[in-house]
């Protein structure tokens, strides 16, 4: 078992790590060897979408995932509190400038990957807002509208897929040629059907179920997306 970061954030403003976060950590741990082999030390950019408290990015930095040669870890969240939380968690776990950790963290406030130069991300990780809801909440006007930021962490609109759908549509543009993405789903997102459809439309995709787990009344799963 790899060590898990120590996390302490204000959970009124930032998503508190839960079963979904841990399933993502477990998936990355399970694929450690795979990732090391695929990149063989040659990669530059890791990007987590929606880092929230920073637990996943810090876990990757702390354990040199995917490589001991380091990377630029971009942490992109729409919630300004999450970016502060991510910095705080990384600092708390000595991932900012300490020896032994070879990565460099960069928090960026943005809406998904709209502000990233194309085809640069080698490893993309996303635990999205996946809960089905009538619609995706609007972005709050001010940083101080605290509860509204938390709604954005949970609610994914129709089928819980409005945000994840955008990310899937942009994978081709965002990932580097060898790039790999780990994305979390709940059963109500209907991930099996979706994966079938993507592979039928473009057989060059290689998509695999890495982990799945029952969490309360949800069944969560993590799929890995890459090109063959």
């Amino acid at each position: 078992m790899l060590p898990t970061p120590y996390v302490k954030c204000d959970y009124e403003k930032v998503y508190e790590p839960a079963e979904d976060s841990f399933l993502l950590l477990d998936s990355l741990e399970k694929d450690l060897q795979f990732l090391q082999t695929r990149f063989d030390g040659n990669l530059a950019i890791v990007c987590e979408l929606g880092p929230g408290s920073g637990i996943v990015t810090t876990f990757m930095m702390q354990n040199n995932i995917p490589s001991h040669n380091g990377a630029l870890y971009l942490a992109l969240d729409i919630n300004p509190w999450a970016l502060e939380g991510t910095l705080q968690t990384a600092t708390l776990n000595n991932c900012i400038k300490e020896n032994g950790h070879s990565g460099y963290l960069e928090p960026v406030q943005s809406d998904l990957t709209t502000g990233l130069r194309d085809k640069q991300v080698d490893l993309l990780v996303f635990n999205p807002p996946y809960v089905p809801a009538e619609e995706v909440p609007e972005i709050p006007d001010t940083k101080e509208n605290i509860d509204q930021w938390l709604d954005l962490a949970l609610l994914g609109g129709v089928d819980g897929m409005e945000i994840t759908g955008k990310v899937l549509d942009s994978l081709e543009t965002v990932l580097s040629p060898k790039g790999v993405a780990y994305i979390l789903f709940c059963a109500r997102n209907k991930p099996e059907q979706l994966v079938q459809k993507i592979m039928q439309e473009d057989p060059s995709w290689d998509i695999e179920l890495i982990e799945h787990r029952k969490a309360g009344w949800e069944v969560l799963s993590v799929y890995r997306f890459m090109h063959k």
Partner: peptide
Amino acid sequence: MKVLTTNFLKCSVKA
């Protein structure tokens, strides 16, 4: 933001 990061950011406007 590190100067390096300027090399990976573009305008968010789709157009």
